[in-house]
Amino acid sequence: MKERLFTSGRNMLDIDPVLHAWHWEIPAYLFLGGLAAGLVFFSSFYYLRGKEDKMPIAVKVAPFVAPIAIIIGLIFLLLDLKHKLYFWQLYTTIRLDSPMSWGAWTLGIVMPLSIIWPLLYLDDLKKYFWNKNIIIYEIIDWLEGLINDFDFTKSLLGWLKENQKVIAWANIILSVILGVYTGILLSAFNARPLWNTAILGPLFLTSGISTAAATIMWMTNDHYERIRFSRIDLWLIAVELFLITHMFMGLTAGTQASAEAASLFMGGPYTAVFWIGVVAMGLLLPATLEIMELIGFKIPIAIPAFLILVGGALFRFVMVDAGQLSRYFFQ
C-alpha cells in the first residue's frame, strides 16, 4: 500500500494561519441574513393570505427585527473586509457569478424595503411595547410624531399603505433570494469539499426560516399564533434533520476529499460541538420541548426558542469554520 509518510507544506507563519480567511463575521452575517429573510417572508406571506389579525406578531410586530438584523449583518460584512476603505466597490458592479456580489446587492435592496414594513404598523408596535419596554415605545412614538409632522411623509406612508400588496410580493421574492443566498454562499466554494454540496443551500434556508419562526414564537402572546409557529418549527426541524443526514451520507459516499471533510464531524475536532451543540441542543431538545408543550405540558416558550436561535447560529459557525479546514490537500 502506498502511504504518505511525510509532507512538509508551506510554512509561512504570516500566511498559513491567516488563510483561515473567514472568522466570526461571516457566520454571524449568514445567521442574521437568514433570520431577517425568514421574518420578512412570514410577515408578507401571512399578510397576503389575509391573516393579519390571526398572526398579529408575525405580520405586524416581528418584522421590525429584520432591518435591525440586516444592518448589523452588513456591519459584520464590512468588518470582515480586509480592505475596508474600498468596500463601496461592492456596489459598482453586479457579478451574478459571485454570490458575495449578488448577496450584497440583495441585502442592499432588502434593507430599505424591510424598514418600510414596520413603519406601516407603528401603532401596533407601540401597543406591543407599551408595557414591555418604555424606551422603545418612546422611540416609536417620536418616530410616529415625526412622520405626522410633515405632509409629505404622511402622504408617502399613506401611499405605501395603499400599495402594501405590491410591497408584500416584492418582500416575498427578495426574502426567498436572501434566504437561499445565505445557503448558496458557501456551496459556491468548490475548493472546500465540506461546502461543495447542493444540500447546504436548502439546509441553511430551512434553518434560517426556523430561527425566524422561533423568534415569532418567542415574541407572541397569542395562543393560536404560538401553536401555529410551534408546529411550523417542528416541521422545519424535521426537514433539517433529514437534510443533515443526507448531507453526511453524500459526503461520506463521495470522493476522498469529501469523506475527509465528513470525518471532521465523525471523530474529528467538530464532533462534539456539532452533534451535541447543534443537533442535540439546537434541534432535538427544542423539538422535544415543543412537542411536550403541544400535548399540554407547561413549558416557558423562551427555552425552545432560545435553543433554536443559538443552535442556528452555532450551526453556521461550525460550518464556516470546519469548511475552511476541509481541502483537497492534507498536509
Partner: peptide
Amino acid sequence: EECIGCGACIESCPYDARYFHPDGY
C-alpha cells in the same frame, strides 16, 4: 485598488495560492 479584501477568492482557491497582503488586498 479594486479588491475589498472579502476573502472570497482565498476560499475558492483549492491550492491556497492567495494571501492577504498586510495592506489589506
